[in-house]
Design a protein around this nucleic acid. Sequence first.
DNA 1: TTTTGAGTTGTTCGA
DNA 2: GTCGAACAACTCAAA
Length: 464
Amino acid sequence: MPKAIWWIRRDLRLADNPALCAAFALGTVIPVFIRDPHLLERTPARRQAFLFAGLRALEAGLRARGGHLTVRTGEAGETLSGLMAETGAETVWAEEDYTPYARARDEKVARTFPLRLTAGQTVHPPQSVLKADRSPYTVFTPYSRAWKAMLPPRITLLPAPARLDSSAYPSEELPDPAPYRQALFPASEAEARRRLDAFLDKRISAYGEARNRMDLDGTSSLSPYIRFGMISLRQAASGALEVMRQASNSAAEKSAETWLNELIWREFYVAILYHFPAVLRASFRPDLRSIAWAADPSGLEAWKMGQTGYPVVDAAMRQLLQTGWMHNRARMITASFLVKDLLVDWRLGERWFMQNLLDGDPAANNGGWQWTAGTGTDAAPYFRVFNPILQGQKFDPLGEAVRRWLPELANVPVQYIHTPWTMPVELQTHLGCVIGRDYPAPIIQHDSARQRILHVYGAASRKG
DNA sequence: TTTTGAGTTGTTCGA
DNA sequence: GTCGAACAACTCAAA
């Protein structure tokens, strides 16, 4: 029987996996994960632990089907060439990854031997969603219209192969993820599937309303799983479309479509990074590349540690530090605060998120930051400055999300929870929450910060 | 080629 | 309290 290597990169799943199925169609599948030192160096310990825990779960799934996972460390091309010689495999199949690093790596590998790449990371490959003149979209709404128009009547999902019998080859022990065990995000394909099903079954019909509430469990919380392909965007989109078809009322259907749009945003940013790789280094909008960002190391540090004195910002930043995840609304609020209140270069925030998010993904993270900073494709207009007090009152009305992550504010009454510095001094003393001692005073005044950013951005965009 | 309609997520101000 | 306009014009996409 001919043998084919399934090179696993960010597709840690057996179901709906075109690369795996392509290798399977050829004969015996040899599943391989390569620990690329250059890539791991840039992957923080917590995200590595999530990845390795996911690989362990995948290994168990392979074993149950008679297969084995082979783990090696090294440069991809060399390691794979060695493995082909060692195992007698004739081909290597992998799911195409569209980041600049992955593309350069794969091009280099393909010079050594023919690497077979299959589309699978997205519903529509980034090369395929183009305007009539074959150039890429840079505005979301027309992109999403084209994306939807390209959908087949039904997305056909690939089943997981029932048997994957293969010999075992020498394999490195996977690092123990225990020190970073994620109680909140157990890493496995089964957990991803369970979450998607639970979300599609119920919460998706309230998503339109609940998704912005930081105190509710309104989001799908699938992002780390999507990041490592424990669930595919095809599976997610297929589920959303199914709910839309079967929805009993228009609100539920609209809610499901809102979630589908969020999935399309992911693909939009995958496509943006694919067509405009320079966005990783500089603002997409040339006129805003000349902004003189503030050198504010103490502000940046306060932001990172959740010590800005604005409760929604601090709660979100401490949640990120403690759990490796943050609510989408909170990502916008904290990003807006760093860029528009502190006038700190968005790339520093982007880097911090990449260092801390379990779902840290270059395309989505860069897209999100450039959107909030107003420097990106189809970005928020620069005068749209989030007010951290109003955002808190709107999307965490009782302060429950704040209290969960800021124990020092646990006893602060609702009317002061987003503005604790306005508490009467006697109350501060009584509650054991003295501003400036137990919780910081605001490090910047939002009103004046807003005036500053409007002036700076306005000048830059007028200058062109 | 020219024209036209449209564009994720907000806030503030003044009537 | 509620509402529309202003924020700034600009670029994109498609006809």
